[in-house]
Amino acid sequence: MGKAGLIRIAVILAAVLALEIACRTGAVPPSAVVPPSAMLASVYEILTTGEIAHDLRLTLTAVVIATIIAIVGGFFAGLIIHGLPRLRRTLAPLLAAYYAIPHLAFYPLLIVVFGLGLGPLIVLASLLGIMAMIIATLDGLDHVPRVLLRTAAVLRLNRWSEMMLVRLPAAFPHLLSGIKLAFSYAFIGVVAGEFILSTAGLGHAISFAYDNFQNRRMYGLILIAIGLVTLVNTTLLVGERRLLTRRGMR
């Protein structure tokens, strides 16, 4: 690890330590922040008692379903839009403005339509994730080097082979970033929805703990949520790094 990496770890450790001291000495009241050591202890308790298992299962189910919908739907929508330049030009303003609109404002509406439960969460999360995948697919297909397509023509590949053997492999790094983003968005969508209004799930557990002044537990749950996302993100990132290194893009 380089010098910057070591300093980074030192900075983070120092920040955590400072927070610990501030909490222990009462500079930060326990009604606001509990000490990091207590947060970790709380994570341990919650995970070992397994009390969160049900909520976690619900949240992950919604996230996984939404991510799959976003990835598959976004990929095929991207393929179609890429194949139809006129449609793409027409949709351009929509693509550009999509993430500017706070989709969460529509969550209440989705509850009215689908009722409380997994339904509105999955819809909200898929809606958030799908555009990332569409844009990544378009981006990937746009950036296939022309010389590779010319090579495909010299080798007389038909359209299907060209797509499967040249375009998609060449676009794969972009698709992978799309997958990563789709997951992130889906997770945010589900947890935000649960958090605002729902009867179960990780987000709901956090807001329930907040409402009931269970700070220790709340911080433990927040750490679990962040840890979960970081775990998935890091896994995808490691895969991406490996791929990019092999391709000499890093």
């Binding site: 987000g203 807001s207 703990a209 749950l221």
Partner: peptide, 11 residues
């Protein structure tokens, strides 16, 4: 940037 900041709102 990539963590779900929504979970931090109670904080």
């Amino acid at each position: 940037y990539s963590i779900p900041k929504v979970t931090l709102y109670p904080v």
